[in-house]
């Protein structure tokens, strides 16, 4: 196997990454030749903006402020950029609720509080799983299984909770919108939960449930949707590829020796990135086979991040020319670029 990627200079962050699923988000700001990164550390989000020439880095830390300053700070579960046609927002989910910021983290434009009970209950309360869908929706999952749909205006802070989808009965783990950019696929959102159940949705005025793909009581911690294929990573280290609308299983891969923490797609190149607690990052190639109406997966590349339980891994561009990785207790974002 030829060396496909080589390690680049790491980006230092202000505090180390916590062990949380999908704990890295990347946003490319092409007009300004910048890439933004976020990594969650307990109750803080580390944000770095890096210039493409590698000369300038600026840092910002966001606390989980929970609307009013006096309230106690809670642990953050996930931070992710949501890219809509009209605007980009940075969304933080925590034990107390959901915060939405302008994409540079400067202004909090919306705060949604979860119904937290007075005394803690046996079932934990938190929001997790973030996706921008269609023209104007941001969806966020909740530990009780609900998926909250927010209506996002093209500017301003008049964000409203427009719908609550109640199909999951276990904690939502992740969700993803169709990432190919093509409008020909009916399904445009897939959500996953702790039981491994996948729900496939069509967004719109009322979200429509298109299909439910049952799990096998193994948590699905990361999910992606690409050209109508739902790609799911599980606690058993397996990756499964389903046709989203029919639930037909196209491929099953024994990909990792431990819990998968992150999947990502480079949509233009059809590359899949998978990363797990086993300290390995793998790159795969997906291809649609029109004759058999199926999808094939091929293994391309491994990268071992020695002694690191990986918690976040993302491609830095749509062609998969570079990817970035974070790991538990690491205060850096490690980058790899194609040779």
């Amino acid at each position: 196997m030829a060396k496909m990627y080589h390690k680049e200079k790491s980006i230092q962050i202000k505090s180390s990454a916590s062990a949380l699923f999908n704990n890295l988000s990347v946003l490319r700001i092409a007009p300004r030749c910048l890439t933004y990164f976020t990594v969650v550390h307990a109750n803080v989000v580390n944000m770095v903006s890096a210039s493409w020439d590698g000369l300038n880095y600026s840092h910002r830390q966001l606390q989980s402020k929970e609307g009013n300053v006096a309230a106690s700070s809670s642990l953050i579960m996930q931070a992710a950029w949501c890219v809509l046609p009209s605007r980009d927002l940075l969304v933080l989910t925590s034990q107390k609720g959901i915060q939405m910021y302008e994409s540079d983290g400067s202004i909090m434009v919306y705060w949604h509080a979860l119904d937290t009970p007075e005394t803690p209950t046996a079932q934990a309360m938190f929001a997790r799983g973030i996706a921008a869908v269609g023209d104007a929706y941001i969806c966020v999952g909740v530990s009780f299984g609900s998926v909250l749909v927010f209506d996002i205006p093209s500017k301003g802070s008049n964000i409203t909770l427009s719908e609550v989808l109640e199909e999951h009965t276990e904690a939502v783990t992740d969700m993803a919108a169709e990432c190919s950019g093509s409008m020909e696929y009916i399904a445009d959102l897939v959500t996953s939960d702790d039981s491994g159940l996948l729900c496939v949705w069509k967004s719109g005025g009322d979200f429509q449930l298109l299909n439910k793909i049952p799990g096998f009581d193994t948590s699905c911690s990361s999910v992606k949707l690409w050209k109508g294929i739902a790609i799911a990573g599980y606690s058993t280290g397996q990756i499964r590829l389903y046709e989203a609308i029919t639930g037909i299983l196209h491929a099953e891969v024994n990909a990792h020796a431990r819990w998968i923490y992150s999947l990502d797609i480079a949509p233009f190149a059809g590359l899949l990135l998978s990363a797990a607690e086993d300290s390995l990052v793998r790159v795969w190639h997906l291809s649609l086979v029109p004759e058999t109406n199926s999808v094939e997966i091929e293994h391309l590349y491994n990268e071992c991040v020695t002694d690191t339980q990986i918690c976040g891994a993302k491609f830095c561009d749509g062609d998969g020319c570079a990817f970035a990785v974070t790991g538990y207790d690491l205060s850096e974002i490690i980058r790899y670029t194609q040779v």
């Binding site: 058993t236 280290g237 196209h250 891969v253 990792h256 020796a257 058999t292």
Partner: peptide, 17 residues
């Protein structure tokens, strides 16, 4: 050994419709 319930990594299986 891999964790209980986990397969050793290394196998890709593909299925027809």
């Amino acid at each position: 050994p891999v964790p209980y319930g986990t397969h050793t990594p290394g196998l890709i299986r593909m299925f027809s419709c």
